[in-house]
Design a protein around this nucleic acid. Sequence first.
DNA 1: CATGAATGAGGTTTCATTCAT
DNA 2: TATGAATGAAACCTCATTCAT
Lengths: 215, 215, 215, 215
Amino acid sequence: MPIEFKLRTHSNDEALVKARRTHIVHCCTRVFAKKGYSHSSMRELAKACEMSIGNLYHYFGSKDQILYSIINDATLRQVEYVEHFAEETSRLDPNSGLRELIRKFFEWHDSNQNVTLFIYQETRALPQKAQKQIFESENRIHAIFETAIKRGVASGDFRVSEPGLIANNIMVIGHAWALRRWSLQKGWTFESFAAGEIEAIMGTLCIQGGNLPAK
Amino acid sequence: MPIEFKLRTHSNDEALVKARRTHIVHCCTRVFAKKGYSHSSMRELAKACEMSIGNLYHYFGSKDQILYSIINDATLRQVEYVEHFAEETSRLDPNSGLRELIRKFFEWHDSNQNVTLFIYQETRALPQKAQKQIFESENRIHAIFETAIKRGVASGDFRVSEPGLIANNIMVIGHAWALRRWSLQKGWTFESFAAGEIEAIMGTLCIQGGNLPAK
Amino acid sequence: MPIEFKLRTHSNDEALVKARRTHIVHCCTRVFAKKGYSHSSMRELAKACEMSIGNLYHYFGSKDQILYSIINDATLRQVEYVEHFAEETSRLDPNSGLRELIRKFFEWHDSNQNVTLFIYQETRALPQKAQKQIFESENRIHAIFETAIKRGVASGDFRVSEPGLIANNIMVIGHAWALRRWSLQKGWTFESFAAGEIEAIMGTLCIQGGNLPAK
Amino acid sequence: MPIEFKLRTHSNDEALVKARRTHIVHCCTRVFAKKGYSHSSMRELAKACEMSIGNLYHYFGSKDQILYSIINDATLRQVEYVEHFAEETSRLDPNSGLRELIRKFFEWHDSNQNVTLFIYQETRALPQKAQKQIFESENRIHAIFETAIKRGVASGDFRVSEPGLIANNIMVIGHAWALRRWSLQKGWTFESFAAGEIEAIMGTLCIQGGNLPAK
DNA sequence: CATGAATGAGGTTTCATTCAT
DNA sequence: TATGAATGAAACCTCATTCAT
C-alpha cells in the first residue's frame, strides 16, 4: 500500500485541488525535465503553470512535494499499467504473453521518457520514506516480470536459471531507451529498438533457436 | 579532448597540484554520493577534504569544475580500463574473450558504484560541452563491446542480428548493479550477479544451447 | 474619542454587524493570546471565528483593525467597569471603598488575563494614534485610583506623600497577576493574592506608622 | 544553570565570534526596541549592524537566535548584577540593605529600559525551552528579594505576612518604570520615582503601622 | 451576505565565490 | 600557499488582501 504523504493544501474544493495538482504536475515535469530539479526555481515553475507562486503553494506545500508527486504519480500509473497488461497477457501462451508484456512496458517508457529520466535522477532528493515507496513500486513491476518468466519455465517454454535477473534486465533495458536516448535514439527507432531487444531477451530464455518469430 | 580548466594560482609544484586535485576529487565524490551534488555545500566539501574553502578554490575554479572532474576523471579511467582489457581479451577466442571483458566491465562498476550512480544523476548538470565529452567516452566503450561481438559473429561463434543493442545491454546491466543496488544487492552477491548476467548475455549471442564455455 | 474604522460593506443590519464584530473580537483574542499577533494568520483567525476570510473582511478592514478592536474594546470596558465601581465605592468610607475598588480592579484582570497580557505585548504594534487612545484610558483609571487615595488623605484616613505612585502601583500589581502568572499563579490563588496585595497596599497608605523612615 | 542554546555559527575564531555577537546584540536591540521584533527585517538589522545579511548569519543561525540572545544576555546580566548587590547590601542592616538593593534594581531597569520593555513584549516569541530559562532567571531575582525581606523579618525590622508578594511588587514596580514610561516619566524623574517607591515599599514592611487588617 | 482561490510583494535564509591577511 | 570572514544575489516560502462567483 502506498504510504500517503499528506499533501498540505490550503484549499478545500477536492475536485479543483485534483485538477490543479494534475496541471501542476504536468507542467512542472516539463520544466524539471529540461532544467533539472534544483535548477528550476519556483518562479519558473509558477510561470510554466501559468499561476502565481502563492497559488502554487495552495496545492503543494513545498517544491519537494511537487517533485514527490511527479515521481509518485508516474510510478503508480506505471504499476497500474503494467499490472493491467500482465493480466491481459496472462491469457496468451507464455512466449507470446511475455513478448507482448515487454512491448507494453517499453511503450510506457517511450511515452514517458522524461519521467523515467527524472526518476533516476531525482529520486534520491526525496525523503527516505518516499524513496521506499518508489522502490516498492519498482519491486512490484519486477515481480510481475519474474512471475511471467516463471510461468514459461513451468510450462517448458523457457529455460532460465535466474528469472530474477532476466526480469531486472527487461526493466533496465526499457529504462535505457529513455536514459540513454542520446545514444540509442540515434541508431534506432522505437520500433526497431523494441523488436531487437525483445528478440535478444527471448533468445536468453528460449531453449533453442526457435525464439525467432516463425519464419 | 578533455576540456581544460584553468588553475587559479600559478603553482610551481605540478605534482602537488595533481595530488591535491586527486585528493579533492576522491573526498568530494563521497560527499556528493551521500548528499547529492546540489545539497553539498562548499563548506562541507572543504571540511571533507580537510582544507579551507579558499584553498579548494586554488585547485578548482568552481564547484561545477569539481563535479566535472569527478565525472570526467572517472569516465576516462573507465575508458582506459575497458580499452586495456579489450586489448588483453582480444587474444582469447571470441567467446571467452567477451565473457572476460564483460566481467572486467562489471568489476569496474562494482568498485565504482558511487561514481556510476553519480554520472547518471548529475551529468545533466554539466554544461553541454562537458556532457558531449562524457557521451563520447560512453560511445567508445560501446564501440568496444560492439567490436568484440562482431568478432564472434565473423568467426561464427555468435549469431546476433543487432550487435549494437547487445553492446548497449551489457553496459546498462553493468550500470544497473550500481543504480539498482537497493534491489539487486539484496538478492545477489556480486559474484552470483556477474555469473548469472554473463550467462544470460551469452545465451542471447550463442547459436544454440551451448552458451556455456566449450567443454 | 475612539478612532472610527470603516465597514467594508454597507450593512443594513446594525445589530448583526455588532454581534459579528463581538464574536470576531472574542475568538481572535483567544488565538492571539495563544500564538501572538504576528504568528496568527488570517486563515487561522477565520477558522477560529468559523467564518470565511472574505467575510472577516466585511467586519474588519484589516488584521490591524482586529488587533485595535480587541485592545480598544477591552480598554473601554475596563474603564467603564472601573468607573462604575469607583462611583459605587465612593459611598463607603475611604478605607473600605479603596479596598473594594482595588479588589474589583484585580477581579477584572483575573477575568481578562489574556487581554491584559495582550495589551502589554501588542499595543506597540498599533499606530501612534491608537496607542494614544489606549494610554488615555489607562490615565483615566489611574486618575480614579489617585482620586480615591486623595479622598482618604483629605479625610485623614491615609497618609501618603505620592498618591500618583501608589495609584500606579495598584495598577501594575493588578496587571502582574496576568503578566507574571507563570510565577504568581504557582504560589497563590487569586483570593490569596488579592487579599495579600490589598493588605500590602493599604499598609503603605495607612496612618499610624510613620511609613516614613524614622526621623 | 542556564541551558546552553547552541548558537549555530559558521565561524571558528572564538574571540571574533564573541565580539561580533556582542556588537550584533547591541545594534539589534536598538532596532527591535524601536520597531518591534517582527517589524524589523533582517535587511534592517544587517544595516544597523553595518554588516551584510550573510555575515549576520555567520554569527547567529536565525533571527530568533538574535532575539533569544538579546533577552538571555540581558537577563543573565541582570541576575549577576542583582546578585552582586545582594551580596554587597547583606552587610548593611536589613532596612538600609533592602533600600539600597531596591535602588540598584531600579537603576538597572532605568539603564536598560529598552530591554525590559523588550522582554515583556517578545519573550513569548521564544521557544518554550528558552522561555523557561528566562523565567528561571526572574525567579532567582525574586528569591533574592524574598530573602532580603525575610532577613528583616527575622531581625524584627520588618513585619510582613507575605514576603513573596512584596518581592513580586518590588520587581513589577521596577519594570513599570520602563513599561509605563509614557505615563510615569511625564510626572516623575527617575530620582523622584525611586525615592517615592522605596518609601512606599518600606512603608508596607515596617513595623509600626498596622499593615495588618485592623484589629 | 458569504466564500475562498488567487495574487505577489517581501520575508528569512543559503551558499558559491572573493580577497585581505 | 593557505585561510575563512565577508558578500549579496537569489532561493524558497508566507500571508494580508482582493474579487469573481
